[in-house]
Amino acid sequence: MRPGFPAYLRALGAALLLLAGLATAQQAGAASFEKLTIETRGGPITFDIELALTPAERAKGLMYRTELAPTGGMLFDFGVDQPVYMWMKNTYIPLDMVFIRADGRIARIAENTTPLSTATIESGGPVRAVLELAGGTARARGIVAGDKVSHRLFVAR
């Protein structure tokens, strides 16, 4: 808008642009972030994670991303313990896949998965969720099978 327009029209135009931007972000599946903590032998490690809860969100995952923050990640919730099979198709960065049981215990970690691969990465048993972290994070931060993940999705048993 031109500076000569009355203030109320400028304000109205700004409000409409803001609403259009919010609608576009929602349609694009804009991420919301939550905290997740892993209790390791070296102490707690906190991540800012995105949630993949719906089949469409889980199918897309971290595809087409070219970077992932060192403290970022994505948590895939499958709702119940079940065998899980993942792949790296259309995923451009190596990832650590942390397979987590419903009680929050880490069952297995697949480290530095191969970008763009269609090879199946298995949970090795029933799990509730998979946490994807930047490749090499688990080893660098001392995250191992048996560590406890704290997040609202996991209940102590």
Rank of each mutant, 00 (worst) to 15 (best):
M1Y: 07
R2P: 00
G4Y: 14
P6L: 12
P6C: 14
A7S: 05
L9E: 09
L9G: 01
L9N: 02
L12P: 00
A14Y: 08
A14M: 13
A15Y: 09
A15D: 02
A15I: 06
L16T: 07
L18K: 07
L19H: 03
L19Y: 00
A20D: 02
A20F: 08
A25S: 09
A25V: 15
Q26V: 03
Q27N: 02
A28N: 06
A30R: 13
A31M: 09
A31D: 05
A31C: 02
E34Q: 09
K35A: 15
K35Y: 10
L36K: 01
L36V: 05
L36I: 02
T37V: 15
T37P: 04
E39R: 11
R41H: 04
G42C: 02
G43N: 09
G43Q: 12
G43L: 04
P44E: 13
P44D: 13
T46C: 03
D48G: 03
D48T: 06
D48V: 00
I49V: 15
E50P: 00
L53C: 02
L53I: 09
P55G: 12
P55Y: 08
R58F: 06
R58L: 00
A59T: 11
G61S: 08
G61W: 04
Y64I: 04
T66K: 14
L68C: 04
L68N: 04
L68Y: 01
A69W: 07
A69C: 12
P70H: 08
T71H: 09
G73F: 10
G73M: 07
G73C: 11
L75I: 12
F76E: 03
V80F: 14
V80A: 15
Q82F: 02
V84G: 06
Y85W: 08
W87Y: 09
W87N: 12
K89Q: 13
N90S: 04
N90V: 08
T91I: 11
I93S: 02
I93L: 12
V98M: 02
F99S: 01
A102G: 03
A102F: 01
D103Y: 10
R105C: 01
I106E: 07
A107M: 05
R108M: 04
I109K: 11
E111F: 03
E111D: 04
T113S: 13
T113W: 12
T114M: 08
S117F: 05
T118Y: 00
A119P: 03
G124C: 03
P126G: 13
A129P: 06
A129I: 04
L131W: 12
L131P: 07
E132H: 12
E132L: 11
L133V: 10
A134T: 05
A134D: 10
G135A: 10
G135L: 05
G136L: 11
R139G: 01
R139K: 15
I143F: 11
I143G: 05
A145W: 01
G146P: 13
K148I: 14
K148Q: 15
R152E: 04
R157S: 10
